[in-house]
Design a protein around this nucleic acid. Structure first.
Lengths: 117, 117
DNA sequence: CAAACACATGAATAACTGTTCAGATGTTTA
DNA sequence: TAAACATCTGAACAGTTATTCATGTGTTTG
């Protein structure tokens, strides 16, 4: 019987499993990474990021463009802020949002490559 | 009163809004992209992809490494398969999974750059 | 100062999601 | 052929989440 014909774990190929477990990123990093993807995984938030990659926009601009309420946009912007995906600049009563850094745009571009294969 | 002091939409700066709306990706592409991010946004699925980027693994290997039930892994692999993020190779009763293409790994690497700033 | 305005926030609700459990499918072994 | 095995699948439940609604905060305008 070939070794590869059997589920390794049941035959305690602990070396292989241990190696993978040892090499893995720490839990905090993985949780943070999953969180970034999760945040970009909502259509409204993703579209916000797409538009912000092209222009600095205020809340009601975004609401009008996206076709959702300003309240909904504000809630989502808070989530995006929490992951440092967007930043904002206050000017009087206005709040102008933009992407926090270039990583976000690069991440979206990378995702598009997979989608538009 | 400066034009930038006012929310453009209320003053119907339709040119700006229309330009962004015209430039935007079509709904299908955006939905697909959000879906990719959403799928990678679950810690279990993300960890599966991380491990599969290092080795071809069967379901019970993954279950052992992740510390979750084989059923849960199988369910999540189906989701990953649905987005063509992973593929599998049958060999008797075993199913060996691996990443579908290099985009996935590139996407995760790009995400890590943002997290490990 | 009072009203209008842009935005933020808390609570509530409806919709969604990941895991578990029980059972099914198809393959291999004794 | 029967039992063991690896995997898959449907239903159900608990936990999470995005939006709405009402209200609060701070700024600007008349």
């Amino acid at each position: 019987m070939k070794e590869s014909d059997v589920c390794q774990v049941r035959f305690s190929d602990q070396a292989k499993v241990d190696l993978l477990l040892k090499r893995q990123k720490d839990n905090r990093t993985m949780a943070a990474l999953a969180e970034i993807f999760r945040v970009l995984g909502d259509p409204t938030r993703l579209r916000i990021c797409m538009f912000l990659s092209q222009a600095e926009l205020c809340v009601c601009d975004l609401a009008a463009i996206l076709g959702v309420s300003e309240s909904a946009v504000s809630h989502q912007l808070r989530v995006l802020r929490g992951q440092r995906l967007v930043k904002y600049r206050r000017e009087g009563k206005m709040a102008f949002y933009s992407l926090d850094d270039d990583h976000v745009q690069a991440l979206i571009a990378q995702g598009l490559e997979h989608v538009e294969e």
